[in-house]
């Protein structure tokens, strides 16, 4: 239900990260999501895709790593640099 907000938060963080590297283009972002985080990974992936489509970040991909507790954190950002 609240995965749209989570996805939007991920995109904002990616924008902030890439703002520091103007020449680079973000390709993929990795997040770690715990079983107890209250986030449905499938729903998050769906919302993420919907938000990315048509945005400045298209075609950014999302990679979800599962974890045992209430993790909800970034892992990596993959960038393409000219």
């Amino acid at each position: 239900m609240h995965e749209v907000g989570i996805a939007a938060g991920i995109l904002d963080a990616v924008r902030k990260e890439t703002a520091m590297r103007p020449a680079a283009r973000a390709v993929k972002v990795g997040v770690r999501i715990g079983e107890m985080a209250g986030i449905d990974p499938e729903s998050l992936a769906f919302c993420f895709e919907a938000l990315v489509k048509g945005s400045d970040l298209e075609p950014l991909a999302l990679e979800i790593h599962r974890a045992p507790a209430d993790e909800l954190e970034f892992v990596f950002l993959e960038l393409e640099e000219p």
Partner: peptide
């Protein structure tokens, strides 16, 4: 292609 570690909580603004 480079991969950089990214730290912090996803809900950073709320945190």
């Amino acid at each position: 292609m480079i991969r950089v570690p990214m730290e912090g909580k996803v809900l950073n603004e709320n945190e």
